[in-house]
Design a binder for these strands. Structure first.
Lengths: 124, 124, 124, 124
DNA sequence: GTGGTCTAGACCACG
DNA sequence: GTGGTCTAGACCACC
C-alpha cells in the first residue's frame, strides 16, 4: 500500500504522512474506514512503530483521521476530507504561483506555463 | 537587501541562497555585477561568514554565480540567468501541478484553480 | 582504508572525496553498502567531522552515494556507479588527449604515446 | 595573444603560465625570441604586473625561458623546448592513464577508450 | 546512534 | 582586500 523511498530527503514520518494523505484523497482509504494498526503498518514497512505513530498523530492533528481509544484510527468523514483536500491543494498551488510572481514572471507567462504543464502532466 | 527569518525552519544558508536567487531573478543583482563580500554580508546579517560562503557555493554549483578567488563573486551572464530562471520555475510549477493529479483532481479542475489563483496572486 | 597525504596540496575534503570514489569504483565499497559514519571516519583520519561531512556532501551531489538522515550514508546502486565511473574517466582521458592536441602533437604521436604509456602503467 | 578566463578556477598566474607554455610549444613564441615585457603584457591583459612576473618566474624555473638582465626574457633554445614539451605531456598522459588503472579499468578498455577519444578530439 | 547545521576563530593563497 | 579551508565544539531532528 505504501512504499518508502530511502533516497527521499524528507523524514520518514513525513513520507508516511504524505502517502497516507494521498491514499485518503484518492479514496483508497475511504472515509470512516479503519487504518491499519500502527504495529501492522510498522511491520509491513520494516520501520519502527514510533515513526508510524508520529505520522498518525500528524494526520490526526490536521484532521484527516480520528482516533477511537481501544479501537484504532479511522479516516475522517467525507465532507471533512473533501474540504481538507481542497484547501491543501489550494495552498500548494498558490505557493507555486506566488513564487512565479516573485521571480518576476508576468501573469500571462505564468498562465501559459500552467496550461502547458497541465497538458504535459495529464498526458503521461 | 536580505533579511533572515528565524521563524523559518529551513537552514540559514538555504534562506540566503533562495533570497539571492530571487534578487538575481528580478534584476536587483544584475548579470556580471559583484555580490557583497562573504564577510560583509555576514556582518550585515549577523551570521558567520561560513554560512554565507556555503550559500555562495550552492549558487555557484547551480550556475547562478561564478567566483574569482581574491576578487569576489559575480552574477552569471544574462543568458545563463534567464535560462536557469525558466527551468527553475518550470520544475516548481510542474511539481505543484503533478501533485494535483496525484491527489485525484481532474485536469479541468486544476486548470480552473490555476487560473483563479493566478488572478488572486497578481491582484495583491 | 583511507590515508591522508599532508604533502598533497589539495584540500583535505577533496582527497577524501577522491579516495572514496576510487574505493567505490574498485568495489571495496560495494553498491548499497553503508559508508563509515562521519564521526568514525573523522576519528580514524584524525580530522574534524565537518571535513568528512563535506566530502560526503560532494559525493552525494555527484550521485555516488545517498544519505538517509539518522541512518547513515550508502553507496549508490550498481548501475549508477558504473555509469558514473565511465563518464568520469571519459572526461579525464579526453582532457588529457585534448591537451596533447593543443600542445601541437600529431594524432599518431598521441596514439603511439598512449599505447606505450598504457603498457608501462599496466606492467608495474 | 593571450586571453584570461575569469571563470577558470585556477589562479591567474597559472593560467598565464600555461597559455605561454602552449604558445611556446606550438611555435608562436619561437625559440630565442623575446617575450613581451612584463609591463606590456600586464597592460594588455589588464592585470597587475606582479602576476605576469610570477608567471615568468615560473616559466624560468621550469626552463622554458631565460632572463637576460636589462634586456628581457627569451624563449629557451629549440632542443630544450622540444624536450620539455615531451616530458611535460608524457607526465600528463601517464597520470590520466594511471588513473584509469586505479579505477579498475582493464588495459584493453583503456586502450580502446584512448583510441576512440583521440579520433573524436582530432576530428573537431 | 546517525547526519545537518551553525558558531567563532584561525591560517592560507591570490591579486 | 577577496574567497577557501580547517578546527573545535555545540545543538538539532531523526530513527
Amino acid at each position: 500500500m505504501i512504499t518508502i523511498d530511502y533516497k527521499d530527503k524528507r523524514p520518514l514520518f513525513e513520507q508516511v504522512t504524505d502517502k497516507l494523505k494521498k491514499l485518503i484523497f484518492i479514496g483508497v482509504l475511504p472515509s470512516d474506514s479503519q487504518l491499519p494498526s500502527v504495529r501492522a503498518l510498522a511491520v509491513e514497512l520494516s520501520i519502527t512503530p514510533n515513526t508510524i505513530a508520529r505520522a498518525y498523530h500528524q494526520l490526526e492533528s490536521e484532521g484527516f483521521i480520528f482516533t477511537v481509544k481501544g479501537k484504532g484510527c479511522f479516516v475522517a468523514p467525507k465532507d471533512v476530507v473533501v474540504s481538507l483536500k481542497e484547501t491543501d491543494y489550494y495552498k500548494t498551488l498558490k505557493a507555486a504561483i506566488a513564487e512565479g510572481r516573485q521571480a518576476g514572471f508576468s501573469k500571462s507567462k505564468v498562465l501559459a506555463l500552467a496550461k502547458q504543464i497541465t497538458e504535459e502532466v495529464y498526458n503521461d
